[in-house]
Design a protein around this nucleic acid. Structure first.
Length: 817
RNA sequence: GCCGGGAUGGUGAAAUUGGCAGACACAAGGGACUUAAAAUCCCUCGGAGGAAACUCCGUGCCGGUUCGAGUCCGGCUCCCGGCACCA
């Protein structure tokens, strides 16, 4: 009998559709929300997507056979720059280009038979969807969490748009890898920092998230505890210089202050600076440098003295105020108190410019001497030269100094985060327009809810070529609008939103994707949330996965979303690489197209190969040769199962079985146990190995004509179903079943059949293997040891009485001589 | 520099958490079938020695704990990711 995957796959694709197998139940009793990260397509889906969706599809099928009611939706992240780039390069329309890609992708996914409920599909570029993205913006604005501010922002000179902090990877643009510049621009931000503490704290509750992702998020949020201390300008005490430090205990060691060159105060104080000219020159030079240049590791720190003096409120000492670009404008207050003795950066700076160094912490075990210091002493110790704090441990001092400052009204304990607010406006066309109106009288006014969505103007009217300002700005009929408040002539906001805003809430829309009245109904959300298993690549750890937690939390606070955290469990699958271990990509020409695989080897063989090559969390080296093994395996199953299906089904008594029949019976039950255990742990590669072993054993047994054999192969059909669904349905039908195999129950195993009655005991002498012993599973200890002693090889070593005999029941005997 | 993860045959990987290292595959070699090839089936397959029985060595390196270590502890090396002047 020939296994013809093409016919079988076509047949079951059609049947599943007729059966509406993937429809989402309306009233789930045992709910499971399975979600894979939706894709951004700039062509067909690729092999990496295929892996992600096969894992998700496996979970759907496996859970389905365990009686779960599943939500398994799909959609597309469809706004974004590549669509515009295609438009510019080929004159295609961004929407048409996008639609074509999505049509291709959808066709492939349907051919693959992935278990998506397509009736719930969402596309972020559809007005029905981005209407709610805009609505969300307005809600955030209403709560003061969307704000506009002028600041130094990341600018990609190649994409001609600003970028969020999370989109700058090592100083380069995440998309095009151009070196990112800094520009002072007025932009829209989401105040994700006001959720920093919750985003951090909740990580402890996410028990089923991978630890590395949580660690990355913790580091990204970067909470530091310390104090804010307020210094004053010596000649003008009204000018306050607040700083953040994690080491208030070192405040008596301050010998200078440093401020970031781009800090607003630098320009403000310029007129008062004795060294005004040098400061201007230094500032302008610093601003001209790229982030990469400024942060180069081997670069010597430099700066310029302003000539101004700053008073330390603790000891009333006056120190120099320097402008130095090792100080970050965007962290803390943009200025630092410099303690060269106890901070390595300050130490290097002070050494270079001959600024005094003052020791205020002494190590517990030795005495620091100024002339011997080659690096800052940063560890804890005892406070010295610190006025009332002398003799206190530095650890205690951190708290005491902060409290003292609070008491005297020149500081307070403070917490600072590394996380920056999320810059979400983009100077590009293909995104959701920011639903705000700039009125000369009323200022910024949100578009009223009933006027949403603010539609993207027709692309025929837009010149997409990026010029550093939003293309929408030149579309007059889009821009000019009446103020909803006062009716005056006003202008729309011309920017569009970062696509990460679109993808920060799509998981919520899936629960109620066609609702026209609200973003999603609470009752639907309560049915399905949270996501039970979210599968995607680890590269989203500090981008999407942070944003989607933030947005879920925000909607929870609004009382719309029933859960504070979006996903109960997160799973990161590994990448798919070619046989040499290189990343597959179109440009390298080493990419494998899923569509081509469907054609050449069939969906089932491709799935089994993908799941067999490596555990899902590992990277996979896609092996064209390795595919053979899975094809052979499926052909063998097909041949054996089709033959077994001809046997008449009959009840049998397992207790009466013997010989080959008993062997098959025991083997299939053992296989059920192992495959089930492996699948529960996502050990798909070993689950397949266990089934391969069973098939070998089965194929080699003499009697394959009994009801036992038939029953075993029918059970194997269920085991293989989540791996090779098309094949399984075909076999399931051959066994005389009328309904889908996925509506059948996952098999249970006979516990009695799984226990081996004979076990192999390993016999060791001094921990080295010297022999083996077959004994009954409940042979008494003495008997086993006696038998072990009788093994010829072992005898040779036991010339004297063993010092000690280790006995592990069912495992081993170890004689120590 | 800091924080993660990893290193097991020619290759992808297994190893019930301290108990037979290399399951299951791929590749390779040999054989059967065939006019021939493909497909299929069978055998060998970590290294060294040995006709064989069997022995020695072997999970990145060095040391330790233990009757027994791929697994635990201490110290390294290399690879891969993340962060990177965060005061």
């Amino acid at each position: 009998m020939k296994y013809s995957y093409k016919e079988i796959e076509a047949k079951w694709r059609k049947r599943w559709k007729e059966w509406k197998l993937y429809d989402t139940p309306q009233t789930p009793e045992k709910k499971f929300y399975q979600l894979e990260m939706f894709p951004y397509l700039s062509g067909d889906i690729h092999i990496g997507h295929f892996r992600n969706y096969v894992i998700g599809d496996f979970v759907w099928r496996y859970k389905k056979m365990h009686g779960y009611d599943l939500l398994h939706p799909f959609g597309y992240d469809a706004f974004g720059i590549p669509a515009e780039e295609a438009a510019i390069k080929r004159g295609a329309s961004p929407r048409k280009w996008t639609d074509e890609n999505l049509a291709t992708g959808t066709q492939t996914l349907k051919a693959l038979g992935i278990s998506y409920d397509w009736s719930r599909e969402v596309r972020t570029c559809d007005p029905d969807y981005y209407k709610w993205t805009q609505w969300l913006f307005i809600k955030l604005f209403g709560k003061g969490l969307a704000y506009r501010d002028t600041s130094l922002v990341n600018w990609c000179p190649s994409c001609n748009t600003v970028l969020a902090n999370e989109q700058v990877i090592g100083g380069k643009c995440w998309r095009c890898e151009a070196v990112v510049e800094k520009r002072e621009l007025e932009q829209w931000f989401f105040k994700i920092t006001s959720y920093a503490q919750r985003l951090l704290r909740n990580l402890d509750r996410l028990k089923d998230w991978p630890e590395p992702v949580k660690i990355m998020q913790r580091n990204w949020i970067g909470r530091s505890e310390g104090a804010e201390l307020v210094f004053e300008l010596k000649d003008n005490p009204d000018v306050k210089l607040p700083i953040f430090t994690t080491r208030p205990d070192t405040v008596y060691g301050v010998t200078f202050m440093a401020i970031a060159p781009e800090h607003k105060l630098v320009s403000k104080l310029l007129e008062q600076m004795p060294n005004k000219e040098e400061v201007i020159a230094y500032r302008d030079a610093a601003l001209a440098k790229s982030e990469i240049e400024r942060m180069a590791e081997d670069r010597e720190k430099d700066g310029v003295d302003t000539g101004l003096r700053v008073r330390n409120p603790f000891n009333n000492e006056d120190v120099q105020l320097w402008v130095a670009d090792y100080v970050l404008a965007s962290y803390g207050t943009g200025m630092v108190m410099a303690v060269p003795a106890h901070d390595q950066r300050d130490f290097e700076f002070a050494k270079r410019y001959g600024i005094p160094i003052k020791i205020v912490i002494q190590p517990p075990d030795r005495e620091l001497k100024l002339e011997e210091m080659e690096a800052a002493y940063v560890d804890p110790g005892v406070m010295v030269n610190s006025g009332p704090f002398d003799g206190i441990s530095s650890v205690e001092g951190i708290r005491k100094v902060a409290e003292y400052a609070a008491d005297k009204d020149f500081g307070k304990p403070a917490v600072s985060y590394r996380l920056r607010d999320w810059l979400i406006s983009r100077q590009r066309y293909w995104g959701a327009p920011i639903p705000m109106i700039h009125c000369p009288k009323c200022g910024m006014v949100p578009v009223p809810d009933e006027e949403l969505p603010v539609l993207l103007p027709d692309e025929s009217k837009v010149d997409f070529v990026p010029k550093g300002r939003s293309p929408l700005e030149s579309v007059r009929e889009f821009m000019s609008v009446r103020c909803p408040k006062c009716g005056a002539d006003a202008k729309r906001d011309a920017d569009t939103m970062d696509t990460f805003v679109d993808s920060a809430w799509y998981h919520l829309r899936y629960v109620d994707p066609h609702n026209e009245k609200v973003i999603f109904s609470k009752s639907e959300a309560e049915k399905w949330l949270p996501i039970d298993l979210y599968i995607g690549g680890a590269e989203h750890a500090t981008g999407h996965l942070l944003y989607f937690r933030f947005m879920t939390m925000f909607l929870y606070d609004l009382g719309i979303c029933p859960v504070e955290e979006p996903a109960a469990r997160l799973f990161n699958h590994g990448m798919v690489l070619d046989e040499q271990g290189d990343v597959m990509s179109k440009s390298k020409g080493n990419a494998i197209s899923p569509r081509e695989l469907i054609d050449r080897i069939g969906v089932d063989a491709a799935r089994v190969a993908m799941l067999f090559f490596a555990p899902p969390g590992h990277e996979v080296l896609w092996s064209e040769k390795g595919i053979k093994g899975s094809t052979r395996f499926l052909e063998r199953i097909y041949a054996e199962a089709m033959t077994a299906a001809q046997i008449e089904a009959k009840d049998y008594d397992p207790a009466q079985l013997e010989g080959d029949e008993l062997a098959i019976y025991r083997a299939i039950h053992k296989t059920i146990k192992q495959v089930t255990d492996d699948c529960n742990e996502m050990g798909y590669n070993t689950a397949i190995a266990r089934m391969m072993e069973f098939v070998s054993l089965y194929a080699n047994s003499e009697t394959k004509t009994s009801a036992v054999a038939r029953d075993a192969m029918e059970k194997l059909t269920k085991l293989i179903a989540p791996f090779a669904p098309f094949l399984a349905e075909e076999l399931w039908e051959a066994f005389g079943n009328k309904d889908s195999v996925f509506n059948s129950q996952w098999p249970n195993y006979d516990k009695g059949a799984v226990v081996e009655e004979a076990v192999t005991i390993v016999v060791q002498v001094n921990g080295k293997l010297r022999g083996k012993l077959e004994v009954s599973k409940d042979a008494p200890k003495d008997e086993v040891i006696a038998a072990a002693r009788e093994i010829e090889v072992v005898k040779g070593y036991l010339t004297t009485k063993p010092k000690k005999t280790i006995y592990v029941p069912g495992r081993l005997v170890n004689f120590v001589v």
